[in-house]
Write a protein that binds this DNA or RNA. Structure first.
Lengths: 232, 232
DNA sequence: TTTTCTTTGTGTTATTTTTACACAATGATG
DNA sequence: CATCATTGTGTAAAAATAACACAAAGAAAA
């Protein structure tokens, strides 16, 4: 039986999506990878992804694959770049539209890995050599995250609704790979007027407890439409 | 005769590239468009573009189409975004990887328009409603250009090797849609240390003649590799 | 109960960057 | 030689950023 039933006048590359998923564990930035169970690159780690269907955009496809492979949904997602090197997939011509997503790790329990699909968080700096051109994809995603976090309040996508100033600072420092002065960082963040201070404090710490903060998304949306620019 | 000779197990979207070409006429920023001679959108204007071949990356495809349709080659080009809305092309499922290019208009004489292919520069603010989703593509390209020109010295790609400070300022003002103070703009640009002042002046102007400048690309490359950041 | 240890919360000063702004010089034209 | 339009240059005020220090909180140890 012939399975080659979709025919065209000219050859077409296959079209896939891949998704770089960033998470923050309270200390540093992590990336979610999936171990490939089949060739090519069997046993290597790669980003979740798959083929784009005819009735969905690439963004819809990326979201669908993200959910199917990790259970993650309704998170920040943004197109990163399209990788189209002729040789990037040994199986043939495959063009991939890569996305990157920011998730609150506490919202998702990774499925206990059956043999078919093993998913695991890696510290960004401990990510091993990846399948396909995913090393390049990751480098590009990290660069994008680095620049974007400075002029859009996307860092909060990686934190729980309630977080502390030290957590936020660790997040920025981990992504940007630089250190901030604790006082200047706090001043700058608070000066945006976008953080709500709660009275509640972190319990059971053997030192002065930091207060919880919340990001005021409503206020950000209001300010944004009147020409305000977030910047750290 | 059956022309449907390329067959696959699963359906595949067609993959094209489109290229937004920006040019500067000395006064304001322009966009190069091509009038469609065939349906769909016959008579409407669109960006040059076409199908990606199996032996080329999308960037190579974009460059090839750019040259075939306008004669332009060896210019600044960068991937913009991939547009994949299911309905974006009435002929069927077509995903396009859009690029944007910056050209020195004086380097290219547009081919006298035969009936098959009419190319024309439009002032950015006078661009008519375009074919496909190219209005959206243009908006995205302009936004990218706006942000990129502030932190990468790409404005010089739009000017001749020799240019003047007033020209450079008009270029920035046209792209960013804001006005700069002439003195502050000049100070900021010169402080980068990337411009070479020539002794030559613009001839035959009925007022004090501005001096010619050149962008020091060599110095930029050196500085860049030692962690310098251009910023206007 | 008091001391110790660690970390948070806050404010002031010095430095750097950005903005606002004015006047002399050039070059063709009448 | 005066006129007109535009370039070249510098300084002062204002704003943003960077450097920096001390008091307060909270658990654990003495």
């Amino acid at each position: 039986m012939d399975t080659q039933k979709y025919c065209y006048e000219y050859p077409r590359p296959a079209l896939t999506t891949d998704c770089v998923i960033f998470g923050f564990d309270g200390i540093e930035i992590n990336v979610l990878l999936i171990e490939r169970g089949i060739a090519p690159f069997k046993g290597k780690w790669a980003f979740p992804g798959g083929f784009v269907r005819m009735d969905e955009s690439t963004e819809e496809g990326a979201k669908r694959e993200l959910f199917e492979e990790t259970g993650i949904k309704d998170v920040f997602i943004e197109q990163l770049y399209t990788f189209s090197d002729v040789q990037r997939d040994p199986r043939g011509r495959v063009v991939t539209v890569a996305y990157f997503a920011l998730v609150k790790t506490s919202d998702y329990q990774l499925l206990a890995g059956d043999d078919a699909m093993k998913a695991q968080w890696f510290k960004l700096k401990d990510v091993p050599s990846l399948a396909f051109d995913h090393d390049l994809v990751l480098r590009k995603a990290h660069n994008r995250l680095k620049s974007k976090i400075r002029y859009q309040p996307i860092g909060f996508e990686l934190l729980d609704a309630k977080f502390t100033m030290p957590q936020l600072q660790l997040l920025y420092e981990s992504i940007l790979e630089i250190k901030f002065d604790r006082r200047n960082f706090s001043n700058k963040i608070m000066k945006t007027g976008l953080l709500i201070q709660l009275d509640e404090k972190v319990p059971n710490v053997p030192h002065r407890a930091p207060r919880y903060l919340m990001f005021n998304k409503k206020k950000y949306n209001e300010l944004q439409s009147s020409g305000f620019n977030f910047e750290i």
